[in-house]
Design a binder for these strands. Structure first.
Lengths: 353, 353
DNA sequence: AGCATCCCTGAAACCGGTTGCAGAACAGCC
DNA sequence: GGCTGTTCTGCAACCGGTTTCAGGGATGCT
């Protein structure tokens, strides 16, 4: 009768794998040092005390082979990948660049690496990013704004810690932070009002974008506080980019509305607005004062340098990195959101006509 | 006598691991579908033909559980992580942003995700990035410029495919591409010369930066071709940023050298130069013509819009992504480096004084 | 019927780490 | 010496996939 071979162990494969594995493994280091892999691992991670002799031997072997533990294996064993997913909307936007750098800098000394992905302001793409990040087993996710629904976000938060900006949300495993857009807008408006402007246009962003809405609210509040009536004709749509700013100016001027100042939903919009004014022969701030929002690095070097509301994107990045770390550590983040402030430069002046 | 317990199998641990593993595993899917993990794996990867019945069962189970394979485990088993490391110098630089987006877009449909890290123009940091990326087992690395030595780069290329820009190097597993800086500089200079400028300043970058050197060479060649003597006083150092451009203008003007046009090593330098000229009461292009290099998105919206040499950073990103994919596939990349071209806008004009 | 093939499928080895458990070595104390 | 405690170390299980190998069933051919 043929014997069942169930219990016969497999022959060890001679060589395998689609690609040559030329990297140094823990086992090789351990053998070189004359210890077992477990001991070597413990020495590397300082999990327990080990005799000096062995420790030195292992360290020597590590140095000799330039051994660096395989991140995938470690991630698999530990259930942590030392990776933080970061979903921004467009990495080429000067707005996000700063934040990403700040995150990277904060994370790097702790061994964490950021994995950046772009949502491009499309819910579907944001979902793709989130799924991908979860599959890759990131230890946490930082999400900048975005159109993903609150409910979906909360669902993800049950699988992995999440820090989100641009909205306020309370759930376990999620921390949200929002800059004070409304207050920022009021700072800008108060500045223009103090300069004597009464006809102030507002170039907004996409319809229903929360940031834009908040800033519009600040615009209205400031007008009301100054006793100036709200004129819907002075509010025109933009797209958060230069093009939108240009179109907005053309639309305003073509409609015949009078205005002596503009408050733009963000700096890029202001850049476009300035160019359109220039094209129509109007000077900034001689004929029209312009205020932006963000304080991008480039704003300092515009001609003229742009007056704007500063929200420190760098600080925002630092804070979100800090928050995700605390969330991962199981603590509830104690973070103060960076304040907005007005930076007066040379794109604003008194009323001249 | 006490029996040796070597052969007694360990008791299965009840629960372990520092964090709860709440994710769906292949095994769960397989059990649900009534097949083994091996079969499920094969179905997912389409490794072999499987009866329709089983395939449908497995697909149903996957859908039911929303199963997505754990990337770390897959990476460990396959030896590939579907991750491409990208070392840029500063992610907040508008220059790199575009390239990164292009890379992401090219890689995404293939399941690859880019892992971005910043070298900050420091050899030591670049080494850190490379080490980290290698440890993480990325399938390939794209490196933008940088100060890492050629020898070191070649050494890394023996462990992982590398695409590098900004230098020319030939080794196995490495592909390099360089935009034609010299030719670009000559385009810019020819334009200024044709406008009648004879006293043209050049604001360079860091000393010994290869790009800056190449562009300086183009500057000299163009002058020589036009029969104009080279005046070292017209060449001043910058730093590739706005600040450097400003300092350069001040230095030029304070030294009393006469010039009617400036060629700047990159757009950001030109922005700074324009601002400094503005500060000193000089108009662009009325008093001084300015040409940049890069054609950053912002250049279109400067006042006046900047004339510059365009190197399509986006194309550069696409090409490098394409190249690394081909390299990973074991082919030698067939890539044509994007050409440089002159984009004439409004920061250049005829000589007025 | 007898035998070689081919197609599917599952058990188990393997990727490269971490870690629970037990055993060895050694010290301290009665 | 005998016994208890520490401290250190190694075996082997485990993370969650992929893949080799062998075996069972169906089929083709003589």
């Amino acid at each position: 009768m043929k014997q069942k071979s169930k219990t016969v162990p497999h022959r060890v494969r001679g060589k395998r794998g689609p690609r040559p594995r030329n990297s140094v493994t823990l086992k090789m280091v351990a053998r070189e040092a004359g210890v077992s892999a477990s001991t070597a691992s413990r020495i590397i991670n300082r999990t327990v005390n080990v005799s000096d002799e062995l420790r030195l031997a292992v360290e020597a072997a590590i140095a000799k082979f330039k051994f660096r533990p395989n991140a995938a294996a470690r991630g698999l064993a530990l259930g942590r990948t030392l990776t933080i997913g970061v979903v921004s909307q467009a990495m080429d936007s000067p707005f996000y660049g700063e934040a990403l750098v700040a995150i990277e800098r904060r994370l790097q000394p702790l061994g964490y690496a950021p994995l950046f992905m772009s949502g491009n302001w499309q819910e579907q793409e944001e979902v793709r990013c989130m799924e991908e990040l979860v599959n890759r087993g990131v230890d946490g996710i930082i999400m900048f704004a975005g159109c993903l629904g609150d409910a979906a976000l909360k669902a993800y938060a049950r699988k992995v810690p999440i820090v989100v900006t641009g909205r306020l949300l309370r759930t376990k495993g999620l921390f949200s932070m929002q800059v004070d857009d409304r207050n920022g807008a009021m700072l800008a408006m108060r500045h223009l009002l103090e300069l004597g402007h009464k006809r102030i246009a507002f170039v907004t962003g996409f319809v229903n974008h929360p940031d834009a809405n908040e800033r519009l609210l600040g615009y209205k509040n400031a007008l009301a506080a100054a006793g100036i009536g709200f004129d819907p004709q002075l509010v025109v749509p933009g797209d958060f980019h230069e093009e939108g700013g240009m179109r907005a100016v053309y639309q305003l001027m073509d409609s015949g509305v009078k205005f002596t100042a503009m408050f733009c939903v963000n700096d890029q919009t202001a850049y476009g607005a300035c160019l359109a004014l220039f094209r129509r022969g109007l000077g900034v701030p001689k004929d029209v004062s312009v205020v932006g929002f963000d304080d991008l690095p480039a704003s300092t070097y515009r001609i003229p340098p742009l007056t704007c509301v500063r929200q420190s994107v760098q600080q925002l990045g630092e804070c979100s990195a800090e928050a995700i770390l605390q969330l991962i550590a199981g603590r509830r983040p104690q973070i103060t959101v960076p304040a907005v402030e007005l930076v007066v430069r040379e794109s604003t002046g008194g009323v001249s006509r």
